[in-house]
Design a binder for these strands. Structure first.
Lengths: 281, 281
DNA sequence: ACTGGAACGAGAGCAGTGCTCTCAAATCTC
DNA sequence: GAGATTTGAGAGCACTGCTCTCGTTCCAGT
């Protein structure tokens, strides 16, 4: 609940990207510029999906769009800026997907947690290279620009918000065996609480952080090939771990996931573009 | 204990790399070749440390070594092969570091666990780009060659071995609230147990896997900049999480880490080469 | 309505890259 | 020592990100 406010708040502070306001643009040149910007990003995303970040070539993008390469620099001053735009879009896409997978506070928290986690993984499986772009090794040259931290915090804010909802309604309780926190960590957690989850005690917040890193650690391991030898179709392992983490979070509800659809790992044929007909499968 | 056997076993199956046997080479040409191969990798590692994988240029390496770029192709047939060699070396380096941080079964398991985890993180902090090379987004073009999976499995085998030791000596017990496993997951875990940890029950093995992903998920988040806004010097959080994971593993000992040295995060000035004098610290 | 200025696309060009090919020298093997 | 193999050097190809210039197009203020 509260976290949604902060999402909106922080999201409001970042410079407005040129995705949405294509409509209300004034001049024809502005409209053409917005559209071309979008087309460049779309084509770049397409190339990203097949070749990864390394395979993204400004010349290839401009070639696919029928323009000359130097013209592309009118829209993105460098390759890094294009990548930054793609990173922000990816964060936004994932954040929106995760948020829309949340049925809201009326649903039992354990189910909310499972739904959100599963949807995050599904997004990652469907957008492997975009996931790698934002959660993989950072592009060596540059540090994440300030504009990326707000979209990046949407997912953790959502997860923390879910836990806070459960905390406020008494649906989650702090396990009694919770380990004491060193003062330095409490200090960091207090600063964080003031920002995102004032109602959540530090001992619960640190569990949310652990759950957050655990969730994405698992997805990264699956996508980056660390699990190939062990739990190769990783859906069952993921499912189990998500339930395990829910226990760690102190969620007490019984309404767990695994409703009807088993975790399908058939979608690892992601190298083929999604528009391809799926007859051979 | 048993796991060490498997480490040696699996390590024996991978093609012998040309790092060690520089000595017993027969001809002078062979010796020169081995040395040059090592020099190339050293220089490549040096460039990796400043520019990441993207900044690694064969021409720059050959230039730094005073040779012409085409000559380098006598030693590594492509850039990917050089990267693969660096990946294997990085896995080996991390695996050896982690193994040598393990004081052995005589030490209480909780302490072993903490020592190994801390040393893994320290290695990652000291070799950020090498860590990114092996645990970050995979190089888009190629799939991990078969030769990398053996060195890659050293660390998980070590961690599982530690847990198995604790299990055999009764130092770890399965928490009673452990969640039941779906049959498909049990099947995967049984296959894995047959390979690496026959004595470990499936419910314990899956906890080890969760701990493994959790550990590296945390390190990746710290190194890849996901924690900058929240728990920025991440040492205290890491410390707490490692203890938390130890609890999740069912380790009962009290001899935890955090002995004398607080987790220092001063070493984030990693851009400076390690040969630099550390007087300023 | 016109004009000055801003934005734009095209083209050439520069320095850099991975990689291939050819050719001569060095080295090993018989 | 002769033949075979390996090595290093150089030129070259296709590609990259990026810059600069030069006309053209469009917008805005008078």
């Amino acid at each position: 609940m509260l976290s949604y406010l902060f999402i909106a708040l922080i999201a409001g502070t970042l410079p407005v990207m040129d995705t949405a306001p294509t409509n209300a643009s004034r001049t024809a040149r502005d409209r053409a510029r917005a559209e071309l910007t979008r087309e460049i990003k779309d084509e770049a995303r397409r190339q990203l999906a097949v070749g990864g970040a390394d395979g993204l070539s400004l010349r290839a993008v401009s070639r696919a769009l029928g323009m000359v390469s130097s013209a592309l620099y009118r829209y993105f001053p460098s390759r890094e800026d294009l990548l930054t735009a793609l990173i922000i879009d990816a964060y936004d896409s994932l954040g929106e997907t995760a948020a829309s997978a949340d049925p809201g506070p009326a649903t039992p928290t354990t189910r909310r947690w499972w739904l959100i986690c599963t949807e995050i993984r599904n997004w990652a499986l469907a957008h492997r290279h975009e996931y790698a772009l934002i959660y993989g090794s950072p592009i060596p040259g540059y540090q994440a620009p300030q504009a990326t931290i707000a979209p990046a915090s949407r997912v953790p804010l959502l997860l923390i918000g879910v836990l806070q909802d459960a905390w406020l309604t008494g649906e989650a309780d702090l396990p009694t065996d919770s380990r004491p926190l060193v003062p330095e960590l409490v200090e960091q957690l207090d600063a964080l609480r003031a920002l995102v989850a004032a109602e959540l005690p530090a001992a619960a917040l640190v569990r949310a952080l652990v759950a957050w890193t655990q969730l994405f650690g698992m997805i990264s391991f699956e996508l980056f090939g660390q699990l190939v030898g062990s739990v190769d179709p990783s859906g069952y392992f993921f499912d189990h771990a998500v339930h395990h983490i829910a226990d760690q979070l102190g969620l007490r509800g019984q309404n767990r996931g695994r409703t009807t659809t088993p975790p399908d790992d058939l979608d690892r044929a992601e190298e083929t573009t999604e528009e391809t007909s799926r007859t051979s499968d």
